[in-house]
């Protein structure tokens, strides 16, 4: 598979949110606004690309039996590094996303890609795969965040265009489930992917 194809497949064909339905917790919890969704997506992508590369490079040396714990340690190390970097340079975003930054460790997308792709492909291919899936995740979270922000607070990326309150339920838990349900339906209709 070409590098370009590796990167673009995560956007539509293997979109982690709308097609593979992975990583539902951050998807539902952090998309109260478009910016938050994008921040979460980029944070996940950072961990995904780096852990994919390291796992791909070290896979031949890791015994099969301790494979999963080793991957978890590698992923957890990168998540902690991400925590430091965000705390130092984007403290406001770190505070908003809160608990869901350390929880990237248990995001099924990251471990899933390590197991399904990185441990049997080259470092470069694994990086491309990480970028592709990461971009797909970021895109879906941004769209979901945007929809919820427009309906829920009458603004987009923080710019308010409707005075007063939106439909507050969309910022709260029920709106998260509902918005995601309809986005998946629309995505299925457009792409004809079951």
């Amino acid at each position: 598979m070409g590098k370009f194809k590796l990167i673009t497949k995560g956007l539509v064909k293997e979109n982690p949110t709308f097609v593979l339905l992975l990583g539902m917790c951050p998807t539902l919890a952090t998309t109260t606004s478009a910016m938050n969704g994008m921040g979460m997506g980029l944070a996940t992508m950072f961990v995904l690309v780096l852990s994919n590369m390291v796992i791909s490079a070290t896979a031949p040396y890791i015994p099969d039996k301790v494979r999963i714990p080793s991957y978890i340690v590698i992923i957890a190390a990168f998540v902690t590094i991400l925590q430091f970097i965000m705390q130092a340079y984007t403290p406001a975003m770190y505070e908003t996303l809160g608990l869901f930054i350390p929880l990237i460790v248990v995001n099924c997308i990251v471990l899933g890609r390590a197991e399904a792709f990185a441990n049997k492909n080259s470092v470069i291919d694994s990086a491309c795969d990480g970028i592709g899936i990461g971009l797909g995740f970021t895109m879906s979270l941004t769209i979901l965040g945007l929809v919820r922000e427009i309906l829920g607070s009458g603004s987009a990326f923080g710019f308010k265009f409707i005075e007063g309150d939106g439909i507050i339920a969309f910022v709260l838990a029920p709106g998260a489930f509902l918005a995601l349900a309809y986005l998946i339906v629309i995505f299925r209709k457009i792409t004809k992917i079951e």
């Binding site: 070290t58 890791i62 015994p63 301790v66 714990p69 080793s70 590698i74």
Partner: peptide
């Protein structure tokens, strides 16, 4: 096995 996990 334990060694490699330890090293990681």
């Amino acid at each position: 096995m334990v060694l490699s996990l330890g090293v990681i």
